[in-house]
Design a protein around this nucleic acid. Structure first.
Length: 470
RNA sequence: CGGAGUGUGGCUCAGCCUGGUAGAGCACCUCGUUCGGGACGAGGGGGUCGCAGGUUCAAAUCCUGCCACUCCGACCA
């Protein structure tokens, strides 16, 4: 795949790897002038927003609510969504999963094969087309992927496989809330593994387990795998991945030791033995309220290491055996020539929810503090005296130089007062701000401010460039 | 789905009880003065008061029904 010119030199990753970028990400590399952007900032907090991430996403012009639990993603929010999506994609690919795209609408008849059309309940949005054919807006895709898979695969030699897509889902929640954290329409990565038997399926499960550890860590999040109930999807092996946050929906109990476990590096051999990593991450106590065992907790975890808090679920993995393959007749011939149902697993990541969850983890009173890997822009240039020859020239030079390096840069070139620009920059949470004002330029200096901790350093524009493109 | 609320300009709200020419702050437009942490002055534009009925000479306001949205709880791959 040829490199997009805009991608050349992008600091996201080396150029060789960049050839794998899907087109939407290519567009994220480079610069943007605020005067040509669409960033509808709100000065006051909309009254419906109770929690920080919802409030800040509305104020920062990332989303706009169109109906209960249904949001339009405005340009700034869309950038973050795409960056998170891309990290998820890269780690799925690395773990050997193969991307495809299934439709949002599905035939009811397909769901009758598994028996879930009647079992699912009012959470499923049901639709009829002009021929009175019953359709549904997919809340998940086990049936469809099983249908796709069974049509093509005949032999155990074709296994294992893991297919995934990143697609919008709809679940008609009784009470949507917390903005994109619990919307009715949401973007989810869902992967589905197919194996010849349970032992093989567990190997597939372990790959996704490790991929998830890496995925959330790359976003700057500390996600902890916890034993989980399997819920309506069914099955007998499942972990939820939660990031710790006081505003989380789930109560969690764990051994503090899990907070310091090492994340597998990108050279991890997915075809090798992952069991030691899984053991390391599962032998310490960690459970959500639903499956919490207080007696075991007190027996296994010393008092000083007991942690009781709340968390936000950002992923869940299941092994469910032949739950779908048996009723839907998805079978392969074994080495003995006998056909048997394949053993399946499914693996979800809440992509749109992660946007809100990240803000819950990284914000202060002034606004969002994006971790660099998912920030909508990496650098923001603030021209503190728009229209003055020296500040304009210095900003244009910085902007051109950063864009040439493929750096995501937002140039605040509106004719606003410095205070307003500071407030906007802090609100939208771009990790690095370059403050260019007459005061500093008199000494040939600009100020580089790091949003995460508020530290500022005066330096020459050349040094600022070197520091931010290092 | 139970309970509690709210719908008035892009945002936050007042006005409703006690019916009588639709308001404020912020935002927006023009001009001027400003300019390192959300400036100031003057002038200006923008609203079928959620929808539909009803009562009345007259309804944002009173009555009835509906719709939407929010919060608490239950629910939540």
């Amino acid at each position: 795949m040829p490199l997009s010119p805009a991608c050349r030199g992008c600091p996201e990753k080396n150029e060789k790897e960049h050839g794998r970028c899907v087109p939407p990400l290519n567009r994220l590399c480079g610069g943007m002038r605020l005067s040509r952007y669409f960033l509808p900032i709100l000065r006051e907090t909309p009254k419906e927003a109770e929690i920080a991430s919802h409030r800040l996403m509305l104020r920062a012009g990332m989303i706009r609510q169109e109906a209960a639990g249904i949001y339009a993603w405005l340009p700034l929010g869309f950038r973050v969504l795409k960056k998170i999506e891309q990290i998820v994609r890269e780690e799925q690919d690395r773990a050997g999963a193969v991307e495809l795209l299934m439709p949002t609408l599905q035939l009811a008849d397909l769901w009758r094969e598994s028996g879930r059309y009647d079992a699912y309940g009012p959470e499923m949005l049901r639709i009829k087309d002009r021929h009175e054919r019953e359709l549904l807006y997919g809340p998940t895709n086990e049936e469809m992927i099983t249908e796709i898979f069974r049509a093509a695969i005949r032999s155990y030699r074709d296994l294992p496989r893991n297919l995934y897509h990143i697609q919008w889902k709809f679940r008609d929640e009784q009470r949507p809330r917390f903005g994109v954290m619990r919307g009715r329409e949401f973007l989810m990565k869902d992967a589905y593994s197919f194996d010849v038997d349970e032992a093989a399926a567990r190997l597939s499960y372990n790959k996704m387990f490790v991929a998830y550890l890496r995925t959330f860590a790359r976003m700057g999040l500390k996600a902890i795998p916890m034993r989980a109930e399997t819920g309506p999807i069914g099955g007998d092996l499942s972990h939820e991945f939660l990031i710790l946050a006081e505003t989380g929906e789930s109560g969690v109990f764990c051994d503090k030791g899990v907070l310091d476990l090492p994340i597998p590096d990108e050279g991890v051999d997915y075809d090798g033995d992952l069991s030691s990593i899984i053991r390391q991450w599962t032998h310490l106590y960690a459970a959500t309220q639903d499956v919490h065992d207080e007696v075991r907790f007190e027996r296994e975890v010393p008092p000083e290491r007991r942690l009781q808090t709340r968390g936000i679920e950002v992923g869940q993995i299941f092994y469910f055996g032949t739950k779908y393959s048996a009723p839907m007749n998805a079978v392969v011939a074994g080495s003995d020539g006998v056909e048997r149902p394949i053993h399946g697993g499914s693996y979800g990541v809440g992509v749109s929810r992660l946007v809100g969850a990240t803000i819950e983890a990284f914000h202060d009173d002034a606004g969002i503090k994006w971790p660099e890997p998912v920030a909508p822009f990496r650098v923001m240039i603030l021209n503190l005296k728009q229209g003055a020859a020296d500040t304009d020239a210095a900003c244009e030079q910085l902007y051109a130089a950063l864009a040439a390096k493929g750096m995501d840069t937002l140039y605040h070139d509106l004719d606003e007062r410095p205070g307003a620009k500071f407030a906007t920059a802090d609100l939208i949470g771009v990790p690095w701000q370059i403050l260019v004002g007459p005061r500093g330029l008199a000494e040939g200096k600009v100020e580089v401010k790091r949003r995460a901790d508020g530290t500022r350093d005066l330096m020459s524009p050349a040094d600022a460039l070197a520091r931010l493109t290092a």
